[in-house]
Simulated scan of single mutants.
Amino acid sequence: MTNFITGLIGVAGVCAFLGIMLWWIKAVPLIVICVLVMALLSYDFYQSLRTNGNGTG
């Protein structure tokens, strides 16, 4: 449960940072990069919850 809470706080922080950055800088390449970063972040967060952080699973 601790991994879920701390991971959710981290994901929310990155989303807030990238959201504010995209709000002020409206460039298509930056939007594409941020979307890819968020997709990779979400996938990694899902994988870490699934394996329970011990590297096996």
Score class of each variant (00 low, 15 high):
49 L>N: 09
18 L>E: 05
40 L>K: 07
33 I>P: 04
29 P>D: 08
9 I>E: 08
5 I>K: 07
41 L>F: 09
9 I>T: 05
13 G>L: 12
34 C>E: 06
28 V>E: 13
50 R>V: 04
2 T>R: 07
14 V>A: 10
39 A>T: 13
42 S>L: 14
7 G>W: 00
56 T>V: 12
16 A>S: 10
25 I>D: 09
22 L>M: 14
3 N>C: 04
43 Y>L: 13
35 V>A: 15
34 C>W: 02
4 F>I: 09
25 I>R: 11
33 I>V: 15
46 Y>R: 00
23 W>N: 11
17 F>H: 02
56 T>S: 08
25 I>M: 07
21 M>K: 08
8 L>E: 11
54 N>D: 14
49 L>A: 00
27 A>G: 05
40 L>R: 11
26 K>W: 02
44 D>F: 08
51 T>R: 10
32 V>R: 09
46 Y>C: 01
46 Y>D: 01
26 K>R: 15
31 I>S: 07
14 V>D: 02
34 C>S: 15
42 S>I: 14
56 T>A: 03
20 I>L: 13
34 C>K: 02
30 L>C: 08
10 G>P: 03
47 Q>K: 14
10 G>R: 02
51 T>I: 04
44 D>G: 01
5 I>H: 05
49 L>T: 00
48 S>M: 04
40 L>S: 09
24 W>Q: 13
17 F>I: 15
28 V>W: 13
32 V>W: 13
55 G>M: 04
55 G>W: 06
40 L>H: 08
42 S>N: 01
23 W>M: 08
44 D>E: 09
10 G>F: 05
54 N>M: 01
13 G>W: 03
35 V>F: 15
6 T>R: 03
5 I>T: 09
56 T>G: 07
23 W>V: 07
49 L>F: 00
47 Q>G: 04
40 L>T: 08
53 G>W: 05
36 L>G: 15
50 R>N: 10
13 G>N: 02
22 L>T: 13
18 L>M: 12
28 V>C: 00
16 A>G: 13
3 N>S: 05
22 L>N: 12
27 A>N: 11
42 S>V: 13
35 V>G: 08
23 W>T: 09
37 V>A: 14
9 I>C: 05
43 Y>C: 05
39 A>F: 15
46 Y>F: 12
55 G>F: 04
7 G>C: 02
44 D>I: 04
55 G>Q: 03
46 Y>K: 03
11 V>S: 00
37 V>P: 03
24 W>R: 15
28 V>T: 12
43 Y>N: 02
17 F>E: 05
3 N>Y: 01
48 S>F: 02
31 I>M: 12
16 A>I: 12
53 G>Y: 06
15 C>P: 00
24 W>N: 12
49 L>Q: 08
